[in-house]
């Protein structure tokens, strides 16, 4: 089966100051697939995923070697518009981070900075993305309440809705369920399964079952390197590397 490559990392090294955080990372991310990134804490998962939408640009004294492509274009090329990259590659963070504004305004914000002015179009889009993020039923009566009053799980789904509203092509999730209870986690997982029909998804997760359930491909990171990358099924049933096996069976990490 021929799958279309959406993003590709090629010989990526990344340094915080002089300390290397990623070493020769090579990875393909396929269209309409969930790619899971697993590995113990501090092994560079966040560092890697944040390179995919250039969120590491602001880190002082950091340095990138190698290239990352989105549809064949080098996203770190000086000619590339970082704002455009971030519009096409959205991100949902580990800790839900809604703005201290109303639910409605949280979503409206992204639409406005993308040049949308028409009030009725904005209203439609807000409702639409809340429905897509499976949050509409819970908030439809209180769109103008502060987003900070929502529960953690609801806040995270609001962040997903906010991200969906600007119509990204790729969505990055950095441990989106790390701070959520099991029920909220299950809801987000369901949502991921739906979203992968339409979007290309990369998810960092600590939860092995989650990776196994939602992803098509899995990359196992260890100490800034990719130990193993392949079909999720293969990684979890017949890992080639003993370290992968040790990790997924819970013997370290």
């Amino acid at each position: 089966m021929d799958k279309e490559i959406r993003m590709r990392a090629e010989g990526v090294n990344f340094f915080y100051g002089s300390r290397p955080a990623l070493k020769d990372v090579n990875l393909e991310i396929y269209r309409n697939q969930v790619t899971a990134i697993i590995g113990p804490s501090g092994c560079g998962k966040s560092t890697f995923i944040r390179l995919l939408n250039r969120m590491n640009d602001m880190v002082p004294k950091s340095r990138l070697e190698g290239r990352i492509f989105l549809d064949g274009d080098d996203i770190h090329d000086p000619e590339t518009d970082v704002v455009d990259i971030r519009r096409r590659v959205g991100m949902v963070f580990q800790k839900p981070n809604p703005f201290p504004k109303s639910i409605f305004e949280n979503i409206k914000y992204g639409l406005e900075i993308n040049g949308m002015r028409d009030k009725s179009v904005i209203e439609d889009k807000v409702v639409d993305s809340l429905k897509k993020a499976a949050l509409w039923e819970e908030v439809k009566g209180r769109l103008y309440d502060s987003a900070l009053r929502l529960s953690g799980g609801q806040q995270q789904r609001l962040c997903i809705a906010r991200c969906l509203a600007v119509e990204p092509e790729v969505i990055l999730f950095d441990e989106p369920c790390a701070s959520l209870d099991p029920i909220s986690t299950a809801r987000i997982e369901e949502l991921l399964m739906e979203l992968k029909q339409e979007y290309t998804i990369v998810i960092v997760t600590h939860n092995m079952q989650q990776a196994a359930r939602v992803s098509g491909n899995t990359a196992f990171f260890l100490l800034g390197e990719i130990v193993e990358f392949g079909k999720t099924q293969d990684i979890f049933t017949k890992p080639r590397d003993s370290r992968t096996e040790a990790y997924i069976t819970g013997r370290f990490g």
Partner: peptide, 18 residues
């Protein structure tokens, strides 16, 4: 102001100024 607000905004494709 938590850094997470800035990150949320930038990740939506807002410029630094916005």
């Amino acid at each position: 102001v938590p850094a997470s607000y800035r990150e949320a905004s930038l990740a939506l494709g807002a410029t630094r100024w916005e």
